[in-house]
Amino acid sequence: MAMQFYASPEQVQRDRSEYARKGIARGRSAVVLTYEGGILLVAENLTSLRKISELYDKIGFAAVGRYNEFESLRRAGVRMADLNGYSYDRRDVTGRALANAYTQTLGAIFTETQKPYEVEICVAQVGATPESDELYRITYDGSVMDEPGFMAMGGQAEAISNVLRSRHDATADVAAALALAVEALSSVGGENNTPREIGESQLEVAVLDRSRKGRAFRRISGAALTTLLGGGKDVPEKEVGEAGDVVPPAPGEDKPTVSAASVDLEGKPAADETPAKKPGRSKGPAEGS
């Protein structure tokens, strides 16, 4: 039988913390900051997998670290928010309750499992004014911090935070806030500590829009993002995108929509079709047979 060597709880905690910190520091960073019109969430992201997401009407989510781990946390958050909103009322879903649930989960994972989650997440809730915005930072060990208007997560978060701290202005417009966020993100990671260039394609940007009723979360991408990065202010609301990410999957050329075996029934001219074989129609009415 293998001998169990004694390790003090302090040593175990230290080892786990170090492991989680190293994992988080390897990834790219994200920043969240308030501005006049809401809360801006910006992540450096080369993939199409999301680091920023909507949790509920006024609540957004940003994360850095291991994708599979923060994605499972995001899903749990969406599930909790939707379930509480359905069971009680939409007003009863709060950022504080979500942050609370995340600290419980991450704290339990940190102390009870072999490997801590290598993630750091932000729960942001937009309020009526920048002063009433709430930003919660939840770290791998389940500790939670209430951040004052801005926060950075991921590798070299301290350096990024310093840039934000010196320049953050809660009364700035969205273009200025985005410029600051990009400047902060690009201030680290260059050669010899020089700033580097972060292209539009490397950015994932979203806002929690203070002025919107209902679902405040909007992604900014494509033409709207180009305009904003160029310092443009008037981005038409329509271009700022929908609450959800994208339109549903389009019907493919060779993709059956009636059944997997129905390829030969699809795309025929209407005249050829008998009523029973119309796409989207399954069977006749129950009382008809």
Partner: peptide
């Protein structure tokens, strides 16, 4: 709404 948030895309109308 739940599907849209979890999957990052709307369901198709069908």
């Amino acid at each position: 709404e739940h599907y849209e948030k979890i999957e990052g895309a709307m369901l198709s109308l069908d």
